[in-house]
Simulated assay, not measured.
Amino acid sequence: MRIIRYVNENSVAILAALTKEGKVYPLPQADFMKLVQQANDQNLSLLAFVESAVLGVDPISHSVESLSLLVPIEAPEVWASGVTYERSRDARNFESSEGEIESVTFYDKVYDAERPEIFMKSTAARTVGPNDEVCLRSDSHWQIPEPELGLVINSKGEILGYTIGNDMSCRDIEGENPLYLPQAKVWKHSCSIGPAVLLAETVQDPYQFEITCRIYRGGLKVVEEKASTRQLKRTFDELVSYLLKDNQIFDGTVLLTGTCIIPPNEFTLADGDRIEIEISDIGVLQNPVRLANPAIPTS
Results as ranks from 00 to 15, higher is better:
G157P: 04
D205K: 01
A196I: 07
A292M: 15
V152I: 13
A200Y: 01
S88K: 06
S122L: 05
P264V: 00
M168S: 10
E9S: 13
V284R: 11
N293K: 11
V71Q: 13
S122F: 04
A75N: 03
E100R: 13
C260P: 09
F209N: 01
V83D: 12
G161N: 02
V54E: 05
I277R: 00
N177R: 03
G22C: 08
V36E: 05
S228W: 03
V57A: 07
L46R: 04
A124K: 15
W79A: 06
K156W: 02
C260K: 02
D246V: 08
R5E: 13
S169F: 15
R214Y: 04
L220D: 14
R115T: 14
T163P: 08
L179N: 08
Q29A: 07
A16N: 03
V12C: 05
S81E: 10
G22K: 00
V110K: 07
P72D: 11
K233D: 03
D251I: 08
W142E: 13
V128Q: 04
A80V: 14
C260D: 15
I153Q: 04
V152Y: 03
E146A: 05
K221S: 08
K23Q: 14
E77R: 14
H189C: 09
N177Q: 05
T163Y: 07
L291T: 02
D31Y: 10
E86W: 13
F250H: 08
M1I: 12
L269W: 10
N154F: 02
V57H: 04
A196R: 01
P294L: 02
K233A: 13
I159F: 08
P195G: 07
S68K: 15
R234M: 09
L27Q: 06
I249R: 03
V254N: 05
